[in-house]
Design a protein around this nucleic acid. Structure first.
Lengths: 115, 115
DNA sequence: GTCGGATCTGGAGCGCGCTCCAGGTCAAGA
DNA sequence: TCTTGACCTGGAGCGCGCTCCAGATCCGAC
């Protein structure tokens, strides 16, 4: 199985090595497999998962939110529970979008005023 | 002129009194007029401005961003400069919306999978 | 006048999400 | 074998955006 070094993984994920380790400590990713010497070896699966985490982080979800997300997707939960949780998260994101849209409207007003 | 006490203003703005003072210290609002005894008296204009600030804060802009915003709207800048600045801010907000949409797509996939 | 609640100030404290550091280990190349 | 650089761990430090606190002041109600 082809794996990536921490530096390569961080580069691919667009975050720092420290951040990757931090996410692992927080239980957001991994645990990442280690080489005989103790170095982390990131698989494509790891990278995929990391991509999901960074996607949500970019969207502004907090570490605690993501821990919940991980728990829901990994642990034993009924599909119903998962769907409820996921829909809640989605609604929260929609509210953020709404807040952004309000702010953009204000900006548009100002832009129109000064144009 | 009818004015509001700090408590009333904070209530109307949906933030804490401390936050209002903090915003004033940071130059995001005010300076708020004071009564003879030194208490703040918030006018409707103040409230309007505070509403704009909280709108942008809700949208995720940082204090530094808002300071820039205030500077642009208050100080002597040409309309062109203002428009450039405002468009930049708008573009940044659009990127946030895009990030949120990506995250929502991921959620939608998961929701579809578990439904 | 007195009481009590709201407000004042300057500054300390806090939770979040990293980021950095010291001191040590591992491993590829000369 | 030796060097060099990437990586390891645990823990400290940091910037942001508040939030809280102590100690003082103000002011409406009694």
């Amino acid at each position: 199985m082809i794996t990536l070094t921490p530096a390569a993984a961080a580069d691919r994920a667009g975050v720092s090595i420290d951040t990757l380790r931090y996410y692992e400590r927080e239980g957001l990713i991994g645990p990442i497999r280690r080489s005989a010497g103790g170095r982390r070896e990131y698989t494509e699966d790891d990278l995929f998962w990391i991509g999901m985490v960074t996607c949500f982080r970019d969207a502004g979800l907090g570490i605690a939110d993501l821990r919940g997300f991980v728990a829901i997707l990994r642990a034993e939960h009924s599909p119903q529970e998962r769907v409820v949780f996921l829909r809640e998260r989605r609604a929260a994101l929609e509210q953020r979008v709404a807040a952004l849209c309000r702010a953009m409207e204000v900006l548009d007003e100002k832009i129109a005023y000064y144009s």
